[in-house]
Simulated assay, not measured.
Amino acid sequence: MSAVLKLRDVYKSFGGNHVLTGISFDILSGELVGLLGPNGCGKSTVLNAITGYCPIERGSIELNGQRVDALPPHEVAARAVRRTFQLPSMPARMTVGEVLMAASTQRHGLFATLLPSARTKHIEAQTRERARQLLDELLLAKVAHLPAASISGGQKKLLGIACALMGEPSLLLLDEPMAGVHPNLRTELMRVLKSINERGVTLVVVEHDMHFIAQTCARCIVLDRGRTVADCTPSELEHHEGVVEAYLGRTTKTATAPLRAQGTIGATA
Rank of each mutant, 00 (worst) to 15 (best):
P72I: 08
L140Y: 08
A230K: 06
V206T: 04
V143N: 05
A257E: 15
C41S: 15
N17G: 04
S24K: 05
H182I: 06
P183D: 09
L36H: 01
L174E: 01
R119A: 15
S24E: 06
L165P: 02
V10Y: 02
F25L: 13
A112V: 08
E129C: 10
L114P: 08
R199W: 04
R219K: 12
D136K: 11
E176T: 03
S117D: 13
L36E: 00
P183I: 09
V33D: 01
L158F: 09
L134I: 09
D231K: 03
L189E: 01
G266M: 03
T264P: 04
R199I: 03
A125L: 14
L71G: 05
Q215P: 02
E236Y: 04
P38Y: 03
L20M: 09
L32S: 05
E57M: 09
G52H: 02
F14T: 12
M94C: 11
G249M: 09
L139I: 13
L193G: 01
L135H: 05
F25E: 07
T127Y: 07
H18K: 15
A269C: 07
V143F: 05
L159A: 08
S29G: 10
T187E: 11
I27E: 02
S29L: 08
L134W: 01
T45F: 02
V206E: 00
A125W: 11
T252Y: 06
D136I: 12
S195F: 05
K156M: 12
T264K: 06
G22A: 08
Q66E: 15
T113A: 15
C163F: 06
G65P: 04
L5N: 03
A149R: 14
T84I: 10
T268S: 13
C163A: 15
I265S: 02
H74V: 07
V46W: 00
D136E: 15
R260T: 05
N17Q: 11
E207K: 03
V222K: 00
S150E: 15
N184D: 13
R128K: 15
K43R: 11
A255D: 08
E124G: 09
I151A: 10
P258H: 07
C54E: 12
A77E: 11
G16T: 10
A230I: 09
V243C: 04
E245G: 06
K156L: 06
T251Q: 13
N197S: 12
L174R: 02
A269E: 12
R199D: 11
I161G: 00
T268E: 09
L100E: 04
A255I: 09
L138T: 01
K194Q: 14
A267E: 13
A80Q: 12
G40E: 09
C220H: 01
Q133I: 12
A102N: 12
A112G: 09
R199A: 11
L158E: 03
L203I: 13
L185Y: 08
L28P: 04
V192H: 01
G154P: 05
G65E: 11
G22C: 10
N17V: 15
A148H: 04
V68W: 01
F85H: 09
T254F: 09
L7S: 05
M90C: 07
P55Q: 08
T252M: 08
A103H: 03
G200S: 11
Q66D: 12
Q262H: 13
A144S: 14
V33R: 00
V244Y: 02
T105A: 13
L189H: 03
L159M: 14
S104N: 13
L172Q: 06
